[in-house]
């Protein structure tokens, strides 16, 4: 990263912190339910560092979603619907997590899958009927 990029990153993260952290805390001082859950589960309060990490994760997911063909305005809404934990998980796994939607298999494994379909271990092809 060159200087300018570093500067830009800082500015962007600051604006994100403003948008995603300060706004929901409309009533300063109230402990949110999420914070209560964190304290009950871990015995520790949420750190500012964790919030910063969450904000950065959101930005990362937004960029990645746009790269994956999601309309930018839609991407913002989709990020807003995620919890911090979900955003962090998605930032790590958006490329590798299972994406339900693929019907059909590549030709290379066609026969293996045909066989396993018949054995009832898989169910790739609508026309197979398992032997048992």
């Amino acid at each position: 990263m060159n200087r300018f990029q570093q500067f830009l990153a800082v500015i962007l993260s600051m604006s994100l912190i403003n948008a995603t952290i300060l706004v929901p805390v409309a009533h300063a001082g109230m402990v949110t339910t999420q914070e209560v859950a964190t304290v009950v589960a871990t015995g520790q309060a949420e750190s500012g560092q964790a919030r910063l990490a969450a904000a950065l994760a959101r930005d990362e997911v937004r960029t990645e979603m746009e790269r994956q063909g999601v309309d930018p305005a839609m991407a913002i809404e989709r990020i807003a619907a995620l919890t911090d934990e979900e955003a962090a998980r998605l930032a790590d796994q958006i490329d590798t997590a299972p994406a339900g939607g693929i019907i059909g298999a590549i030709l290379l494994v066609f026969f293996v899958l045909l066989l396993t379909d018949i054995l009832g271990l898989t169910k790739v092809f609508p026309f197979t009927r398992s032997v048992r």
Binding site: M74, R78, A81, L82, A99, G100
Partner: peptide
């Protein structure tokens, strides 16, 4: 579709199914 489908992955992710 616009809320849970990820074109680049040709599918939907579990996290987004819950969020959707």
């Amino acid at each position: 579709i616009g809320q849970v489908f990820l074109p680049g992955r040709e599918g939907s992710l579990q996290v987004e199914m819950l969020a959707g």
